[in-house]
Design a protein around this nucleic acid. Structure first.
Lengths: 164, 164
DNA sequence: CGCCAATATTTTACATGTTATCCAATGCTG
DNA sequence: CAGCATTGGATAACATGTAAAATATTGGCG
């Protein structure tokens, strides 16, 4: 034995952290993605690669920075993902004629057919999630999430005590 | 110019993916964390390290597997984080007397004082987020997230078409 | 034209996520 | 108690997240 002291006063005066908003959002997202990942995995796609392909499907011919914003990926991640998707022959890249710094990314025929292959499965899963939770409530939830995001993004930054 | 073809029929018959539930959750979480990260960063903590310390604060003396569940970290990540927190002198580890496979993690005095230092700032930020969004609505949001998580976790797995 | 700040993207470096594998301690079973 | 499946935790290997720096191109300005 070593330390059987009953720990008299655990000072838990802070909200239980598993109920914090970030943790709630993290867990909710994981519980959703858990259902999608197997289907992606069967087709050799990672979650992020799939995000990129889907973004390109809804609007072909995006610049890298547009794509980054749409997929919520940071530059370095996206850069690597594009390199990989390129080497898999799923996308095409060409330099913008007017500005050689920009490159235009689009789906290749092979990329399009991969999407055609995966999409139905993905939509099925999404539909089942919607059914379980209720389309109405899902819409409510999305609205709240959007509002939260807007409030925190548009509003002034929240400063703690750390003025440098 | 080179390719002014008006791209006659972009087949966008799929819900716009930036409105998908996973993306909504991801963006909402990011918009929240964006406010916390600077404060953590000023104190040399990463988001995940902070999660571990907070979990240990609410309940000292956890096993690694308990900690993993509480912080939603996978074994390998947690293992590295504990190694780092240990080398920073913020936690203590000792082997369980009854079962030498298990180790008991707890905050060191230094870890506790670090928490005392960061917590107020963190709580200030959380309070401001609550104020902006409304405590009532925040509680609603959390309830919906919890319900979603429960439905998707407890229910049967959703199978796509991928029977091998 | 030549210098330089600004912009788009990539690269670098390190922490974490993810899956698979390894190792040591445990405890069951014969 | 010897053999072996199980378990808790750590390590390996590779992809991504994140911040900072590097690279390349453009556009302005003297």
């Amino acid at each position: 034995m070593s330390d059987p002291a009953p720990r008299p006063a655990a000072p838990v005066r802070i909200r239980h952290f598993t109920r914090s908003l970030p943790m709630s959002l993290l867990r909710a997202r994981e519980s959703v993605m858990r259902h999608f990942r197997p289907a992606l995995r069967r087709n050799g796609m990672t979650e992020q690669q799939w995000r990129v392909l889907r973004a390109l499907m809804t609007r072909p011919g995006m610049e890298v920075s547009e794509l980054a914003e749409a997929t919520f990926l940071l530059g370095p991640s996206l850069s690597r993902i594009l390199r990989d998707l390129d080497s898999l022959g799923l996308i095409t890249r060409r330099l913008d004629d007017a500005d050689q710094r920009r490159s235009i990314i689009a789906l290749s025929p092979r990329g399009e057919s991969l999407i055609e292959q995966i999409s139905p499965e993905s939509e099925t899963i999404y539909a089942e999630i919607t059914r379980r939770f209720g389309a109405q409530r899902l819409a409510e939830l999305q609205a709240m999430l959007r509002e939260l995001e807007t409030l925190l993004t548009e509003g002034p930054p929240i400063e703690g005590t750390g003025e440098e």
